[in-house]
Design a protein around this nucleic acid. Structure first.
Lengths: 177, 177
DNA sequence: GTTTGCATGTAAAATGTTACATGATTAC
DNA sequence: GTAATCATGTAACATTTTACATGCAAAC
């Protein structure tokens, strides 16, 4: 997917409320954001550099311990405007969910092909495991109304992710023998 | 997603049962395959050239009318082996569904932010329209047991896509005021 | 005769992954 | 002291999109 550069907005969004280093951002892609987006540190550091050049973020370098340097990034007014603009723009098109398993299934023509059951049971394992992970996250992050109200968007998408996995599992079960 | 080169397998899979031109393949990405994968003609023609160089497919050029040339591609034994191998390899990891709407939602913190309802109603429109399209496809392609048995994998993923959209709509309805 | 669709390609640019590279700090 | 983690970057490569480019055939 080379074209929309959504990473730009993710970084701006993450820098909206507090300054962060490239490493902090990278960490977020390994946990929270990692549930619905991916980016490697090589891409993140490059994009941060570009965003600074364009004036969307600014940086300050601090020393940590004796010699270790950290670069903290903050969103600028210009960056904030760009972020708000993006948030208010209707998304318009539905994304394409590129799923390798779905692709493989497409090329199986015969109803009694043994591979179907193998694939379904592997997917069952993967999706139940994912579901259990998501449910744990939900309890951890949003155990009450107060926590939900603070990051309502995040709560909504986690709720959606859980429902999606439940649906996926229900579908597999229907065809799994 | 730059690395797995799944396009290679899609092209091999599509050439499995009958020879096709690059243009035929391009057309498939606009309809059938387009539901779950995308590729531009520029990428397809390039990949076909590479597949032929590597001996996975072979080509024959035919004349159509007076001057218009068509190049038909067929899968070779070597290509067939590579395709089978891929089909039998467990997919292993779950894909990441990159959804711009989900991303935007993530950055909205306040439960009463007006943008949430706007975004949800836009998504409602998009997903109901998608669902109706998928249901039409289902009736068109798989109206009886016979047609289902012939392309069972395709039937399964279309059934899944419909259920997924229904779930999506159900989720939106829960939060739409 | 003019628009739409058929048919095939190349080039440039953006995006993303993998690998290479280095060094500091913390936990054990 | 040594392994894991913190911290930042570059280089090479693969994938994907957008734009450029051309010409034939069919339908109206």
């Amino acid at each position: 997917m080379a074209q929309k550069n959504l990473l730009k907005y993710i970084l701006l969004g993450l820098l909206e409320n507090e300054k962060k280093t490239g490493y902090d951002l990278k960490k977020l892609f390994e946990t929270e954001i990692g549930e619905f987006w991916s980016a490697k540190h090589s891409q993140i550091y490059l994009e941060l550099k570009r965003l600074e050049e364009e004036g969307y973020i600014s940086s300050e370098t601090g020393l940590f311990g004796n010699k270790l340097e950290k670069t903290y990034y903050t969103i600028t007014d210009k960056g904030q405007r760009v972020l708000n603009e993006w948030e208010e723009t209707p998304t318009g098109e539905l994304p394409l969910n590129k799923d390798e398993f779905i692709l493989k299934l497409y090329f199986i023509h015969d109803k009694n092909d043994e591979r179907i059951q193998k694939m379904l049971s592997e997917q069952y394992r993967l999706h139940t495991s994912k579901l259990s992970h998501l449910k744990k996250r939900m309890i951890l992050l949003f155990k009450d109304e107060v926590t939900r109200s603070k990051n309502y968007g995040h709560f909504l998408i986690l709720d959606h992710a859980i429902r999606r996995e439940e649906e996926y599992i229900g579908w597999i079960k229907q065809y799994l023998q």
